[in-house]
Lab assay of single mutants.
Amino acid sequence: TYTWNTKEEAKQAFKELLKEKRVPSNASWEQAMKMIINDPRYSALAKLSEKKQAFNAYKVQTE
């Protein structure tokens, strides 16, 4: 089980997950979700809006 003390740690864990699963920077949210949804870190960020925000930040960083 994973635990995160801060929102920032949770966001980092979520981005690490995207990186580890090699989600391409041109992937849509739907494509990315299919690649990461079974990992416990997918739940790091509770709100869908937070997940999408972190995903978009990840995409910008990896382009």
Rank of each mutant, 00 (worst) to 15 (best):
E50C: 05
N5Y: 11
Q53K: 13
N56I: 12
Q12M: 09
P40S: 05
K59R: 10
Y42P: 00
D39S: 02
K34W: 09
W29K: 01
A44E: 03
Q12R: 09
E63R: 07
Q12A: 12
A13W: 04
Y42N: 02
E20A: 07
R41A: 04
S43D: 12
Q53G: 07
E63K: 08
T62I: 13
K15Q: 13
L17K: 00
S28P: 08
Y58N: 03
A32M: 03
D39I: 01
E50H: 06
E50G: 02
S25Y: 12
E30L: 08
S25G: 13
Q31G: 06
A57V: 08
E9G: 05
N38G: 15
E20K: 02
I36V: 05
M33R: 14
E16R: 05
V60H: 13
A54E: 10
A44C: 06
Y2R: 10
V23N: 02
T1M: 13
K52F: 06
K21D: 01
Q12D: 11
L45G: 00
E30I: 09
T6I: 04
D39P: 00
M33E: 10
S49Q: 07
A32G: 05
Q53F: 06
V23R: 00
A54C: 10
A13C: 09
T3P: 15
A10G: 07
R41I: 03
A46S: 13
Y42L: 01
A27I: 09
A54N: 03
P40H: 09
K7V: 10
K52C: 06
Y2P: 15
S43W: 11
M35E: 06
A32F: 01
K21M: 10
K47R: 09
A54F: 05
M35Q: 07
T3V: 15
R22S: 10
E30T: 09
A44T: 04
T1F: 12
A57M: 10
M33D: 05
L17Y: 02
A57Q: 11
K15W: 15
Y58E: 03
K7F: 09
A10F: 03
I37C: 13
E30G: 08
I37Q: 12
I36D: 00
E8F: 08
K21C: 08
T1G: 15
K19G: 12
L48C: 09
S43Y: 13
A44M: 04
S43N: 14
M33W: 05
A44L: 05
R22L: 15
Y58K: 01
S43C: 13
I37W: 12
I36A: 02
L48Y: 06
I36Y: 01
A44V: 05
K15V: 14
S43G: 13
A46P: 15
S49F: 05
A13K: 05
T62S: 11
L45I: 12
E8N: 06
N5F: 13
I36E: 01
K15C: 15
E20N: 05
T62N: 12
R22I: 06
K47M: 09
A46I: 09
K11Y: 15
K34C: 12
S43L: 15
L48A: 07
S49A: 10
F55Y: 07
W4M: 05
K51C: 05
A57S: 10
E20R: 02
Q53N: 10
K51P: 02
T62V: 14
A54T: 06
T62R: 06
S43E: 14
K59C: 10
K21G: 03
I37N: 14
A32I: 04
S49D: 12
A57C: 13
A13V: 11
A57N: 13
I36S: 01
W4V: 06
F55K: 01
L45W: 01
K19T: 14
S25H: 13
F14W: 03
D39W: 00
R22C: 11
K59F: 04
Y2E: 14
Y2K: 15
T6K: 03
W29P: 00
F55L: 10
S49R: 12
K15T: 15
L48N: 08
E63V: 13
Y42S: 02
E30M: 08
K21F: 08
D39R: 00
K11W: 15
E50P: 01
Q53Y: 09
T3R: 05
P24G: 03
F55M: 03
M35R: 05
E8S: 09
L17H: 00
E50R: 03
K51M: 07
K21R: 11
F14D: 00
K7W: 06
E9F: 03
Y2Q: 15
A46D: 14
Y2N: 15
M33P: 00
K52Y: 07
N38I: 06
E16S: 08
V60S: 12
R41Q: 01
K21P: 01
K47G: 11
K11F: 15
E20T: 04
T6L: 05
A13Y: 05
L48F: 06
N26Y: 14
K11T: 15
V23M: 02
Q12V: 09
D39C: 03
A27R: 03
T62C: 11
N56W: 13
K11L: 15
N38C: 10
E30H: 11
K19E: 14
T62F: 13
V60E: 15
E16D: 14
T3M: 10
P40I: 12
P24C: 05
R41H: 02
A32S: 03
E9V: 04
E20L: 03
K19D: 09
S49Y: 07
M35I: 09
Y58P: 02
K15Y: 15
F14T: 00
E8Y: 07
V23D: 01
P40N: 07
A54W: 06
K11G: 09
I36P: 00
E16H: 07
S43Q: 14
S49G: 11
E63H: 13
E50D: 10
L48G: 05
S49I: 06
E30C: 08
I37A: 13
K7E: 12
L17A: 08
A32D: 00
A57L: 12
Q12F: 10
A32Y: 01
L45D: 01
W4L: 02
F14G: 00
Q61W: 10
E63P: 10
P24F: 03
K11S: 13
F55S: 02
W29F: 10
P24M: 03
Y42K: 00
T6M: 05
Q61N: 12
A54G: 03
K11H: 15
A13D: 06
T6E: 07
W29C: 03
E50W: 08
T1Y: 13
R22Q: 12
W29S: 00
T1K: 14
Y42E: 04
K34E: 13
K52G: 02
S28V: 08
S49P: 06
Y42V: 02
A44P: 01
R22M: 13
R41S: 02
Y58C: 03
L18F: 04
S25V: 15
K19W: 14
Y58V: 02
R22E: 13
T1L: 12
Y58W: 10
N26H: 07
